[in-house]
């Protein structure tokens, strides 16, 4: 490092800290907040699916991710194929028979 480098003002890092915090906390407040959006979504998605297909509670996975300033919601549902066929048979008996 040259001697001049010692006197050069260093770039302010506080604005970076501030921006990173704003993005991170916007995400965390939703994910961990008092109303816990993830748990609510999970419960409601599970209830909706369970009306039509027999499903185990742990088959629904809801996760929130983050890419830069964008939050993503990932919903992963495992339903065994035989359960789908069974419920289709119940709903549309004529077609299922045909």
């Amino acid at each position: 490092m040259s001697l001049f480098g010692l006197f050069k003002p260093r770039a302010a890092t506080a604005p970076v800290a501030r921006e990173r915090l704003q993005i991170l906390l916007a995400h965390e407040r939703v994910a961990l907040g008092p109303d816990n959006l993830i748990a609510i979504l999970r419960d409601e998605i599970l209830a909706t699916i369970a009306k039509h297909v027999e499903i185990a509670p742990e088959a629904v996975k809801v996760t929130m991710g983050q890419q830069g300033a964008v939050s993503t919601l990932e919903i992963d549902v495992d339903i065994p194929t035989e359960k789908i066929t069974a419920s289709l048979a119940r709903q549309m008996p004529t077609k299922a028979v045909a």
Partner: peptide, 16 residues
């Protein structure tokens, strides 16, 4: 340090 932008300022923390 806050005025030199090395540390979050009062207004920053309050706003967040």
């Amino acid at each position: 340090r806050a005025s030199r932008g090395e540390m979050l300022g009062v207004a920053d923390v309050l706003e967040i």
